[in-house]
Amino acid sequence: MTSLDRPDGPEQDLDATLRALPKVLLHDHLDGGVRPATVVELSAEVGHALPTTDPDALARWFVDAAASGSLPRYLETFEHTLAVMQTADGLRRVAREAALDLAADGVVHAEQRYAPEQHQRAGLTLQQVVDAVREGFAEGEAQAREQGHEIRVVQVLSAMRQADRADEIAALALANRDAGVVGFDIAGPEDGFPPSRHASAFRTVREASFPATVHAGEDGGLDSMAEALHVAGALRLGHGVRIADDVRVEPDGTYRLGTLAHWVRDRRVPLEVCPSSNLQTGAAASVATHPLTTLLRAGFEVTVNTDNRLQSGTSLSRELGLLVREAGWTLDDVLAVTVAAARHTFLHEDERRALVDRIVRPARTPGTARPGRHRA
């Protein structure tokens, strides 16, 4: 790992250290991480109109449009990325580039989620969508390896919670469980579309011993998270930041937890927290006051994620750097949440242990900087 005692200053050292740290990403949307230049090129090919055709200006537009403070408005920005992801070639390219971009940021394992039902406008079957994405990830992994980066990218299939195709997507996930699909999810507007609308799909995957994660606790509150856990049987909570509503910090600095918060903490349910995205959708006011720091200190199983790299103009290294710089995190905290993410991938236990070892080994290597010894 890169030493922090270099002459070019602590800011550069922190960035280099975070990029060099092997990282795990549990919550990242494929259609939220398209390169702006790719959106421009593929939009021209399919005749889709964009706010601007300058890639840099388009990148700024996505961030500004997503920063409205409204989750529904945030979700509207995806019309431009989905428009270029309707063919097998488009999907393969986007998936390949996602794997390369993540690998360049030091991500060694990524669980990319997307909703196959949103990629059928040009006639692709659901299976063709999954196949194209899988092929793109494999191409990206191979190219990253040639560039000296090792990464594994797997799929989490999301059903749109405002639609009625969850049973189809659950069956699709199970049909591809030995072909790179590791989990099932529901995504989209949280308020008004609870997990109970898709109870049969969750029952199907649960009875097949297949893991599920659910977007909950971002736009909705404790009831939404309770349904995700107790109706959907979620093994992870996508976002989950609103569990902080059930945690009180006493004047002496101790934490008083409500019933649901105890359930989540006691059972080590991972929270897939996405700081910058939460600021944009109004789930948090600032990185400095983001509830994930309180949750981490209170003993919850916190992981840090990107959600949508294009809409937030971010990377996993950047998200972690913001927490160090603005929320007072040490790099020991960074290592802790990274290990937590590795422990809660939807891989098998032996694979998770190997992933944890890959993360912590650099911190134990003599002659390298241990992550927790420095602040920014």
Rank of each mutant, 00 (worst) to 15 (best):
P366I: 00
R73M: 09
A142S: 14
H119E: 13
L75F: 10
S317L: 13
F137V: 03
L296G: 01
L355Q: 00
P116C: 05
L4V: 09
G188D: 01
R318K: 14
E150R: 14
Q147H: 15
L71F: 13
D105E: 13
W329Y: 03
L295A: 01
H230A: 12
E97P: 07
A110D: 09
S312D: 07
L124A: 10
E326W: 06
R165N: 13
I243Y: 04
V46D: 00
T213V: 14
R265G: 00
G123Y: 10
A341C: 06
L237A: 11
D245P: 04
A175I: 05
S43N: 10
G183H: 06
A144M: 00
I169S: 08
G180E: 10
L91F: 10
Y114N: 05
A103K: 01
L25Y: 03
A144I: 00
A99E: 04
T314D: 02
V249F: 02
G299Q: 07
A20L: 04
H80L: 08
A232I: 06
E227T: 15
E41R: 13
M225A: 03
P189L: 15
D333I: 07
S277Q: 06
P189R: 11
R236F: 07
E326C: 06
W329G: 01
L229Q: 06
E117N: 10
N308G: 06
E319D: 11
V182M: 11
K23S: 08
V84W: 09
G188R: 02
D223W: 03
T125H: 12
A261R: 04
A234S: 11
G313I: 08
I169V: 15
E250M: 14
G148W: 14
L21F: 04
L320M: 09
Y255D: 08
L172Q: 08
R297W: 05
A173Q: 07
V247K: 01
L235Q: 11
H27C: 10
A104M: 01
G238K: 05
M1E: 06
R268Y: 03
E150Y: 01
V107M: 12
L124W: 04
A98Y: 13
P275E: 09
N308S: 12
S68E: 12
D357C: 02
D31P: 09
D185T: 12
Q147Y: 11
L316M: 00
V214W: 09
R145G: 02
A342E: 01
S276D: 04
F346Y: 13
A244M: 01
L124C: 11
E150H: 12
T306N: 05
A187F: 14
H198F: 11
H198L: 10
A138N: 12
Q128I: 08
A226P: 00
T2A: 13
T289D: 15
Q128C: 07
R121L: 15
A201V: 11
T368N: 08
Q128G: 12
H230M: 14
L25R: 03
A340V: 07
L235P: 00
